[in-house]
Design a protein around this nucleic acid. Structure first.
Lengths: 203, 203
DNA sequence: ACAAACATACAAACAAAGATGTATAGATGT
DNA sequence: ACATCTATACATCTTTGTTTGTATGTTTGT
């Protein structure tokens, strides 16, 4: 083989990431070699080292395809209708997030992060999760504070409500990830956070 | 060196597991070699291979030192006083569990399971967590059903309450594990599950 | 428009480093 | 004397990073 067109090369790159995803999923990150990834994509390590610096770089590229900050979910939701309904905004944003998470690629990558990857070189799942956690917590706090100002929150402080809600959300998420397939975030997850928000809403 | 007394040999074994814990914690399971573990314990791989079949076997030995089924926490709590107070029993059992989890060795091992280990040979963190999850869910369901029968539960079904509570509990736990040290399960965690149980209690 | 010249996209081969498992030697309690 | 515990030595396998080779796009000069 030899040089391909730009489009073909880009396709190769994507195919390599696809292959990496599948192999990471099946055998774990540490235990899949670049050789295996290349073969699974129908290439050799030459292609891998052309497109990526090393395994960590390939891993980052895989993450980049699915990254989505939490605030975006609210931006998609927030219309004039929910502006004075922060708790409802939270609910709808979560449902949006669930729909995204259920997309196969998103689920696979998050699963890899959670159960198929331990830290190496500059990859540190703990730190990454901590970053996501902070992001979600600050955004949630904003909306729970708004709810408290509007007297829509029970006796709990906005801070306590935020931490409680976040714990539930992340616990739900990891539990869903762990299940094989017989668990739908969009239905059962939405129900759960609906229940929690109901409990948090002042009567 | 050579043969030690039985007690010294047992101490060697423990020291090897201690060393494994520390190295796993620092460098991840996949990226620490048996050589590193042995050296860190002041031994050579000969000692490791005498006491353990291989890395997976050593890993299992490490887990065995901290294993504790969820029901045990209730057994320690349950007196005649809380027999008709299932929600209070849940609260106290959780607090017991938090105290256990805060012990350095327990925290280290759980941290390793969560953030420093991906599956290899017969080690599968996902499956292990799923098993623990099932254990906790069945025990919790028992007590929430009791609470429902005693009319101590809000409108939520026992099943919904169980799933909600479990999600919160596991989310709280992983979030606590991830924090460096500035987060106390016994104080902040107890407060959170206290809040949740308060919301779940019928007025 | 059409070569020459260059850059790109891979494959293939190579060298070095680690890790694993095993086999064996040696020392010491019992 | 013998079983137990640990160190040492060895052979093998895997992975990684690098280098080199090469065919083909792509661009540029004329």
């Amino acid at each position: 083989m030899a040089r391909r067109t730009k489009a073909e090369a880009a396709a190769t790159r994507e195919a390599l990431i696809d292959a990496a995803e599948e192999m990471f999923m099946e055998h774990g990150v540490a235990r899949t070699s670049l050789e295996q990834i290349a073969r699974h994509a129908g290439m050799t390590r030459g292609a891998v080292y052309w497109h990526f610096k090393n395994k960590a770089d390939l891993f980052h590229a895989m993450l980049d395809r699915v990254h989505m900050p939490f605030q975006n979910l609210f931006d998609e939701v927030e219309g004039p209708t929910v502006d004075n309904c922060p708790l409802e905004a939270i609910r709808l944003a979560c449902i949006k997030g669930f729909a995204r998470a259920e997309q196969p690629r998103n689920k696979r990558v998050h699963f890899i992060m959670m159960y198929r990857c331990e830290f190496f070189s500059d990859i540190d799942p703990q730190a990454m999760q901590e970053e996501i956690s902070k992001d979600i917590l600050t955004v949630l706090l904003k909306y729970f504070q708004l709810a408290a100002e509007n007297k829509q929150l029970t006796s709990l402080s906005p801070e306590a409500a935020t931490e409680l809600f976040y714990a539930t959300l992340s616990g739900l998420f990891t539990h869903w990830l762990r299940q094989s397939d017989n668990y739908s975030l969009e239905t059962q997850g939405s129900a759960m956070i609906g229940n929690l928000l109901h409990l948090l809403r002042s009567a």
